[in-house]
Structure formats: structure tokens, C-alpha cells
Design a protein around this nucleic acid. Sequence first.
DNA 1: CTTTTTGCAAAGACTTTGCAGAGAT
DNA 2: ATCTCTGCAAAGTCTTTGCAAAAAG
Lengths: 148, 148
Amino acid sequence: MENDLNHFLALMSQRGLNTTKQRVNIAKIFFCMQGHHSLEEICQEVRKTYPGIGQTTVYRTIKLMCEVGLAEELHVGENFARYEVCIGKQHHDHLVCTACGKTIEFHLPEIEKYQKEIAEKNGFTLLDHRHILLGICEKCRAKHREKT
Amino acid sequence: MENDLNHFLALMSQRGLNTTKQRVNIAKIFFCMQGHHSLEEICQEVRKTYPGIGQTTVYRTIKLMCEVGLAEELHVGENFARYEVCIGKQHHDHLVCTACGKTIEFHLPEIEKYQKEIAEKNGFTLLDHRHILLGICEKCRAKHREKT
DNA sequence: CTTTTTGCAAAGACTTTGCAGAGAT
DNA sequence: ATCTCTGCAAAGTCTTTGCAAAAAG
């Protein structure tokens, strides 16, 4: 964890960006968060420990992390972005419930062969965590049946 | 095309919804649009032929089409939704360039086996056009190299 | 004539930007 | 001392909602 923080700060330095309290504190919290979170959620989590950090700063810092490759932005059928730490994580893909947002990460080597095939045929370079499968989870399906 | 329109109107009737000029005209235009379009784009296209249709009405009509299964909402790494007609289209998936939004549709039976496997294991029911592969297309990669 | 629909304007949700004061090197 | 960063408030997008006038059945 300490390492990740230093790595982040090093990447900032490389770009001529300063080490600030806020950036350090946001990184400390964000790097410990599991899963895929909205900026609102990240903000709240940061403020539990470090109140008084501005929302704008959190926005800007997470964007920075995306640029240097320590975080990834994910759009999973919602009108807002979610962010995920991607340090020391194996390549993985996402199965997302479009009803409740529940997300399951999976890794299936067999499927990658076909993904690469498709991408190459079309001249695309695939991104990491690049595969999003949309569905309805069991709970939401049950709820939907109740209504009908 | 005429058939699709009637199908749409029939589905509206089933729900006790009226047949209106606007709904008919929006359907006429939208059903002819290929690809994945923002509501802004759909609106503009509709107004080329039928000026004076309100944006709100287009929004509401496209939402309706999604509810009855004639259209699908797609979020592909942008902060807004795109819509696609899904009448008479074979099941397909999407390869999307996160830099320029270019989308390629593909259908690969082999990959579906694995998608189903993952979904079942996690209690998910998959949606149609459910697979989104993110990447960078050739053009955008070239542009990026220029900069660096 | 009743009920639904339209389309404007206003409000909402998420995100970005402008800028003056605070902070980092 | 200089240049960057913060955080508020304001502006910008995309989308939804309220409501009075218009249209449908």
C-alpha cells in the first residue's frame, strides 16, 4: 500500500506535478477501496477520514490516476462513471447487473482468445478490464417477477 | 418498415397508449437509423423531416421503445446514452473505440458459450447485445503516437 | 368530454471550469 | 518568489419533471 502511494507520487513527479496533502490522502483511501465506485462514493469515503477535501479535488485526482494508469473509468449502463483501482490486479472482465449495478469480476482465459481475434481483425487494440457483459442478477429478476 | 411501425403501434395499444403523430414520425425516422445514436442525434434526424417535434417527446418515445423491446440503450464509455434499433437484428455484440466512439458489431458463436457459462455460474440472465469490448481503433492509436 | 400527450421551461444529476486565496518547491 | 493546487461557486451536459395547452379516443 505504501509502495503504491510512492509509485503514484513518483508518477506525479515525472509529470512535474506536486505532492500535496490532498493527493496523498485521496490516494491512501482510494487505493484501499475494493470494487467500482462513483466519484460521490469515493468523495464520501475520503471525507470520513479527511474531512474538508473538496469534491473538485477528488474529481481531479481520480482523473489524474486514470491518466497515469493507476485507475480505470468504467461505464456500466448508468449515466455516470465508476472508478476502479487497477494496481496489482490481474486482468479481469466485468459482469454487470443493469438493474442494480451489482458487478462481478471474472477471468476466463478461453474467452480472451476470441476477444483478441475480433480486435485484431478490426484493427483495435484492446484495453484492460475491457469486457463488459450486461445482464440481470437473480435478485433483480425475482423482484421483476413479483411486479408481474 | 411499415410492418415495424405497425408492430410498434400495436405494442403501444397493448399498453393503453395512444397513437400520435409524433410517435409515428419518430418511429419512422428512428427505425431507419443504422448504428448507435445519442438522443441529440436522433432528435436532429427526426427534425430534418418533421420539424417542431419537441426534444422531450423524442426522449420519451425512445424510452418507450426501449421498454417494449424495440430499442436498446447502450453506454459505451461516454457520459451519455446511445440508442440502437433492435428489430430484426441478429444477436450481436459491440467492439467500441473509447477514443472516438467508433463501434463495430460482431457475432461470434464461440464466445457465447463462455458468456453463458459465466452468467449462469453467477445467477445472471444475460441481455441481448450485451457484450461490450473496449479498445482503441487504428486511427486513434496513430493519432496518439503522433503526439508522443 | 375525459384521459393522454406534447413541448416548453425549470429542475436534477453528474461533471468541468474560472478564479482568488492557499500551498508546494 | 514563482508556479501549482485547492475549493468554492458558476457553468456546462445530458436527462427528467411539472404543467398548461393541445390532441386522441
